[in-house]
Design a protein around this nucleic acid. Structure first.
Lengths: 156, 156
DNA sequence: CAAAATTAGATAGTGTACAATTTAATAGAG
DNA sequence: CTCTATTAAATTGTACACTATCTAATTTTG
């Protein structure tokens, strides 16, 4: 019953793995967003969807999913919750009734003003300067691009 | 019904935000793990829990949660699933019956050998050299430490 | 020692995530 | 024009993740 050790040399240390750092940091930041997004009454993924719609309204659910890099099966209920909150409304296309366009309501557009301060507030909350953020952003995008390219060459 | 634009200057661009890069990269990597973890039959968070137990067996649920930086209410069902898979068993402490110790089964210990190759395989899958990984790891840990410190000073 | 506070784990409810399946509509091939 | 393949969305099922709440056990305090 005593604590035996399968990995005495510590060949698999959770705290030394980049993936775990990414995974746990991402969640830590999402927790920081909770406070900042309270005034808007939305979650972090919902905030991301709004950000995309503020830039271009009337997107299909599929386009929102692609922008957020989430599955369409995740985007559908996410958009439905935004609709229930009164921030968007969904409108099925008349030309192609499979398509559902998502439009911001006036309330949804009105949230933009309150959201403008969030990036800076979050920068403070996580202690990252703009310069450092830009560098990290570039490195992460390199990783994502590598994964995407690799997937492409596997499929093709 | 036409696409009006609330954010014409692009003051909130999802693709320029570090947080989104972290969030989406983390998920992209978790997707890469699916293939690598298939032989073990576990998910990424379950693999993290195993990694912690291989280093030190007989941990409390709370200690596993702390190591994974997840909530205890998330750790309970995660450990229960590992138990259902036959990789761990739970044993309530006799001295303090609130505590539940989690022990690896022989099968759970046996997975270690198959797991040893995973970090390198994942390094290849995401195209990150060890040197770059170490640098990124340090930067992410700095962010986490900043958030934790800030939380401490708020509470205290 | 008894009441209050704390701690450990479990449970309920909401919201992602994603694979797999279903349904509906469109486009293409014969 | 019909059959087939493809596409878009919804649905189903499993697994996190976290807040809030609950129960039980222990520790602290008066």
């Amino acid at each position: 019953m005593d604590a035996s050790v399968t990995d005495p040399e510590g060949r698999l240390r959770i705290e030394e793995q980049l993936c775990f750092a990414l995974y746990s940091t991402s969640r830590a930041i999402t927790r920081e967003y909770v406070t900042l997004l309270e005034p808007l009454g939305v979650t972090y993924p919902q905030y991301l969807a709004l950000m995309v719609l503020w830039r271009r309204d009337g997107l299909m659910v599929q386009e929102i999913a692609a922008s957020l890099e989430i599955d369409q099966a995740t985007a559908t209920p996410l958009v439905q919750r935004l609709e229930k909150l009164g921030y968007v409304h969904r409108q099925r296309s008349r030309e192609d009734e499979r398509k559902v366009f998502v439009f911001l309501t006036e309330r949804g557009k009105g949230l933009f003003a309150s959201a403008l301060g969030i990036p800076e507030a979050l920068g403070c909350a996580i202690g990252v300067t703009e310069e450092k953020a830009a560098r990290l952003l570039a490195e992460l995008n390199t990783i994502k691009a590598f994964i995407a390219e690799r997937k492409q060459s596997e499929d093709g």
